[in-house]
Design a protein around this nucleic acid. Structure first.
Lengths: 253, 253
DNA sequence: TTCGGGGCTTGATCGATATCAAAGCGCGAC
DNA sequence: GTCGCGCTTTGATATCGATCAAGCCCCGAA
């Protein structure tokens, strides 16, 4: 029930040498301070599952750093990562479909605030700032989900991968010395494939091609560097929509 | 600003001879009565567009009957119907991604309540019943969207079509004399294809095959009859999830 | 009645992506 | 160090669904 008071961004966004102010987006500001006083702080490791219910109560999570991932699974090994939740976004257990083996897990290391829904709901009802935060977060997430659905339903393989990379870069990237964006890729290939509705082999091939064409490089494992963000954006029809949603964070010239 | 008081379901769900009580679901009850006193009633015809903003104010719609459809479009003719909104569901303009040519339109004839978001938001803040209605509707829609995303990303053609038909049947169907479900199909082939992320030709072929196998029949144009709902459900991995979401409405034996 | 048009269906073909299989690589255990 | 395992990459092949094109059905107009 007691919250940590200050959040050290650099710890959780990987040990980049960029100062926080250089991050493309800084949403941590938008999480109302009062929330931290009532929620339990959960520090997550990569892959860790977060429970959707506790003692019969529906749970709510507010992402502070890192990212969460909602995956649903159906019979016959069919899995789909339905959403990636970045800092400032909110997950309520009722967002997960029933009877679909929904699992909420952490992508990389991070931190979230956890509440029981009845408590959170009361907080929102009595505090306009929290109410507004929740409603806005939900709306933003819904809009991002719409883009994701369209990508998965209509884009070809390269467009999907470009969409994913652009989203990650805009969300979590830092300006690299060369002027591009440097970002962590906290998902493994299988998870990315599940997010994009692709086969892992096909995904690997596609990323190899992007690397071969010079659009993408891997300064180190689990890290991506896009030198020419505009060129990457040109590969996905959703570029403008993504930039619009990501707080207009540094639209590449 | 003045609302109609009573809603005649039979008018808007097609002229079936079923009594309302026989409908699989009746969500109209769950819309708080107070909402109707503050919202403008919009009667919609098939294909009619609903504006996302009016005089600079963000709009909200609450579906009372019929259905709404949110479509996004990207360059190169890429369209995706991102969500179908059934009675009792809510749409806020901020749910639509920016710069993605989002369009909210009516599917068939129906009725919706329209609000300005600031007004709706105030109503919710001061009225717990409305607050709860909104939050629950959003959660339910998010869960349905998750299933839809998974279907579009992972299911093959037949599974997608089966999912769509089952969803429609459970949502809007009435028990047919033969024991199956009879329902209106208010979308044309192109719209269904856009919803499922399929080509219209492929969709047509798939539905033909379902018809040939006896699972589906068209008592009349724009109407579907599924005699053996369980057999249809067996075709989609999402059957259990859909039934879970649709208020447990008549899960076929 | 014929005509014309839009939506739907169906067939033939092609291509993108899934699938299967093998090899490469990184990394921790020992 | 070496082994072994899991993740990733790459190649060869199969397949499902998109595309293109023609024909059909329904309906309204003339």
């Amino acid at each position: 029930m007691v919250a940590t008071t200050s959040l050290k961004e650099r710890e959780v966004f990987g040990n980049t040498n960029a100062r926080p102010s250089e991050r493309t987006i800084d949403v941590s500001q938008s999480i109302p301070g009062k929330l931290a006083m009532h929620g339990a702080v959960v520090r997550t490791r990569r892959g860790q599952s977060l429970s959707l219910a506790l003692d019969g109560a529906e749970m709510v999570y507010v992402v502070r750093s890192g990212a969460l991932m909602l995956r649903v699974a159906f019979p016959d090994e069919m899995r789909q990562v339905v959403a990636l939740l970045y800092p400032g976004e909110v997950f309520r257990a009722a967002f997960a479909p029933p009877a679909a083996s929904a699992r909420l897990s952490s992508v990389g290391a991070g931190e979230a605030l956890r509440f029981r829904w009845p408590v959170f709901s009361d907080l929102a009802a009595t505090n306009p700032e929290i109410e507004r935060f929740y409603n806005d977060a939900v709306a933003r997430q819904t809009a991002r989900a719409a883009i994701h659905t369209a990508a998965v339903g209509r884009f070809d393989c390269r467009q999907r991968v470009a969409t994913f990379l652009l989203e990650l870069a805009l969300r979590t990237g830092v300006r690299a010395p060369c002027g591009g964006l440097d970002f962590e890729i906290p998902l493994n290939r299988t998870d990315i494939a599940d997010y994009l509705g692709l086969n892992a082999d096909t995904l690997s091939r596609t990323m190899s091609r992007l690397r071969a064409s010079g659009l993408l490089s891997h300064p180190e494992r689990n890290r991506g560097l896009v030198r020419d963000v505009a060129a990457l954006a040109a590969l996905t029809p959703a570029a403008r929509a993504l930039m619009g949603l990501n707080g207009g964070g540094q639209p590449p010239a």
